[in-house]
Design a protein around this nucleic acid. Structure first.
Length: 425
RNA sequence: GGAGAAGUGGCAGAGUGGUCGAAUGCACUGGUCUUGAAAACCAGCGUACGGAAACGUACCAGGGGUUCGAAUCCCUUCUUCUCCGCCA
């Protein structure tokens, strides 16, 4: 959520920045500012009247204490009239505030200066690439054939017990999942992230805090009986840990990491995009989250990107890093780097991580602030997060890229976790 | 799930209809004192919105109500605690 003061002070700047997202925000912002003006006017009027009513009530109390009951009774009538007008104003103000909030919440985050204008994934810039595509032996196959051949994943039974997109990992497939989770958590912890195990269901307030609600409820599984949502990413519970809190400036940065299953409804896509592990309704991910001082958040973003890159290099996966263009960037982000790994048998890039700086966009919804040592006042913190890493596509790439006619080799760094160095029959 | 009790500022804890945004203690910040620190003393010390400011308004778990006036009374939701039940 953008800050109203920003809009009031620099509407033109916001409009031109949002244009990089291919959004013409002018009508929305004009309407919002007009609404804001109206709200402030009604608020001022309401508060003046409240002030009057308060003074009157005090005088009445005074009169009663002095035993001047008759005079007091007379003033009560006056107070009644004010009260009537006040309740009209109050409901008007309430409605205006609601509208203002709804419109404000509908505006996406302002892209960072380094973000280029662009429409879609085509316009993203490749900022780094590492390794090279492995040359596979004759007879290589995509990962969904490998998982079947070596009995790593039982997609069919997943369909039986739940539905499409809910795989059942078995044997070395299950062990590989556990190994990756453990490896990522260990590496993140070594890099200074505090390990956290959050709940996997969240309430509405949490969904609002990180930007999933309102508007994106269709992407989450919703348990209507208890009005809870299954988390689409650990970002939601972990970032919300600090909702409505004012942290000490000294405590920044706050770095946390969490493993969680992620649940996404992702309705409406079929074909090769969703084949095998490419896109699932339930998948595992290890997330990193940072809360940082505004002056250091971009430094921190670079650090997070470097950290994620180091994980991929350790796994020996050919990857590239993209800086997303305005049009491809998420609603809440100011700057996003996507990581893609090369899937050698599918011969395509698969997104495995997305690392973003949200600046104050989430913090403003979360009311997540730090107390400045300079002015001793609370200021909005910056929040950042990234995947480190999402498992399914990593598994897809590992299986495909490391396959040979007699099996699949496990990267060196994972062997202490898997307890085996090859997958074969 | 059943019965009961309770939710006040960072923490502890007063406050049962009027001058309470809220005593007091601790913590914290600044200062005096000190070679330095501690102690002591003095001062400050919630948040949001509106306002150039003075200041105003709101907030005592959330929402609603009674009243001229609510932290205080009523309704409701949530949470916590105790006992019982169930249970990994």
């Amino acid at each position: 959520m953008l800050q109203l003061t920003t809009l009031r002070q620099n509407a033109e700047g916001v409009i031109s920045a949002l244009a990089k997202r291919q959004v013409d925000a002018r009508p929305a912002i004009d309407a919002l500012l007009a609404l804001n003006e109206q709200r402030r006017q009604v608020q001022a009027e309401t508060e003046n009247l409240q002030s009057e009513a308060n003074k009157l009530a005090k005088s009445i109390g005074q009169l009663f204490r002095e035993g001047k009951a008759a005079e007091a009774e007379g003033m009560k009538a006056q107070s009644g009239a004010i009260k009537e007008r006040l309740s009209e104003l109050a409901s008007e103000l309430h409605a205006l505030e609601g509208k203002e909030h709804d419109q404000l919440v509908a505006l996406p985050n302002i892209p960072h200066v380094s973000v280029v204008a662009g429409k879609s994934a085509e316009d993203n810039e490749i900022v780094e690439s590492w390794g090279q595509a492995p040359v596979l032996a004759e007879g290589h196959v995509p990962h969904w054939e490998l998982t079947e051949r070596y009995k790593l994943i039982d997609f069919e039974r997943g369909v039986k017990i739940t539905g499409a997109g809910f795989p059942v990992y078995t044997g070395k497939g299950a062990r590989l999942q556990r190994a990756l989770i453990q490896f990522f958590l260990d590496r993140n912890t070594e890099a200074g992230y505090l390990e956290v195990q959050p709940p996997y269901f969240i309430n509405e307030a949490s969904g609002f805090g990180t930007g999933q609600l309102p508007d994106k409820e269709g992407q989450m599984y919703h348990m209507t009986t208890d009005n809870l949502y299954a988390i689409p990413t650990a970002e939601v519970p972990v970032t919300n840990l600090l909702r409505d809190e004012i942290v000490a400036e000294n405590d920044l940065p706050i770095k946390m990491t969490a493993y969680s299953p992620c649940f996404r409804r992702e309705a409406g896509s079929y074909g090769k995009d969703v084949r095998g592990l490419n896109r699932l309704h339930q998948f595992d991910k290890v997330e990193i989250v940072c809360v940082e001082h505004p002056s250091k958040s971009y430094e921190r973003l670079e650090e997070m990107v470097a950290h994620v890159a180091s994980l991929l290099r350790d796994l020996g996966l050919h990857y590239r890093i993209l800086r997303l263009c305005g049009g491809d960037m998420g609603f809440t982000s100011a700057l996003t780097y996507d990581f893609e790994v090369w899937s050698a048998a599918q011969e395509r890039w698969l997104e495995v991580s997305s690392v973003s700086n949200f600046e104050t966009f989430q913090a403003n919804r979360l009311m997540l602030r730090y107390r400045s040592q300079e002015d001793h006042k609370p200021h909005l913190a910056h929040t950042l997060n990234g995947s480190a890493l999402a498992l399914p596509r990593i598994v897809a790439a590992l299986l495909e890229n490391n396959q040979s006619p007699d099996g699949i080799s496990i990267p060196e760094v994972l062997r202490p976790y898997t307890g085996f160095d090859r997958i074969n029959e």
